[in-house]
């Protein structure tokens, strides 16, 4: 397979396969949560749970001070990683073109050198996160193969994207192909792993926030 054939394959059939698995898997997992449902709570609510539920969806992004004090590294690296990842995904112009072509939506991009710098910082944060996972007793205890797999499949698009952008390691077509392939791997792995939290985090926060909220506590 020549680099051009490889690139055509990852942009063509492989992309379709990855998106199909991703869409199918994610839809299955979200719908089955909804179908499982929540039994009506018969207790008299102190107040309606809708507003607190929505507040928790957003508010939970801000860590409480106690958590921050006890595991600052986790919080800071986690923050940098998430913000960095979404910045590179959403604001690199070639990526915006991808969203535009698939979803029909587009928005302004950020200067390429900025994205480049963010990528480096994000990769660095991910390395810190891995070291933390390997060294922190709680994280080490909790971590399974899936956690390391998710780390890897998330890192690869960042790393290959960086290498492709800088024309490193392989000819551009090959590197771009590898980059796109790494994203496809991420998409394929997504519905079967904790990466699902990208979607279910909103459900979880909602359920938590509305349950606490109806009891009168903003969780």
């Amino acid at each position: 397979m020549t680099p051009v054939e490889f690139l055509a394959w990852v942009r063509g059939p492989m992309f379709q396969i990855a998106v199909a698995i991703f869409a199918l898997g994610v839809a299955i997992r979200i719908v089955e949560i909804f179908v499982l449902g929540r039994k009506q709570d018969l207790s008299e609510p102190r107040r309606d749970g809708v507003v607190p539920g929505i507040k928790t969806i957003f508010g939970r992004s801000i860590p409480d001070t106690g958590t921050f004090k006890r595991s600052p590294l986790n919080v800071v690296a986690g923050y940098i990683f998430h913000i960095g990842l979404f910045t590179t995904i959403l604001f690199f112009v070639p990526h915006i073109e991808l969203f535009h072509s698939v979803l029909g939506l587009q928005w302004p991009g950020l200067p390429t050198p900025f994205i480049d710098a963010v990528t480096v910082v994000t990769i660095f944060a991910m390395v810190v996160i891995l070291i933390n996972r390997l060294r922190n007793p709680v994280l080490k205890f909790l971590s399974t193969f899936e956690d390391y797999l998710c780390w890897l499949v998330t890192l690869l698009p960042l790393l290959t994207g960086y290498l492709a952008f800088h024309r490193m390691l392989f000819p551009y077509q090959t590197m771009l192909g590898i980059h796109i392939l790494s994203v496809e791997i991420l998409l394929i792995v997504f519905p079967f792993t904790k990466l699902m939290h990208f979607f279910t985090v909103f459900l979880a926060r909602w359920y938590n926030g509305s349950a606490f909220g109806r009891r009168g506590v903003q969780s």
Partner: peptide
Amino acid sequence: QPLSTPTGDVTRTLVYGVVAGALIGAAAG
């Protein structure tokens, strides 16, 4: 078509995937 975009009709795949997934999810659920 920009180089970074997929060549096939991914929108269709996405929509079909989500619809099929929702149906399977509903059945599984």
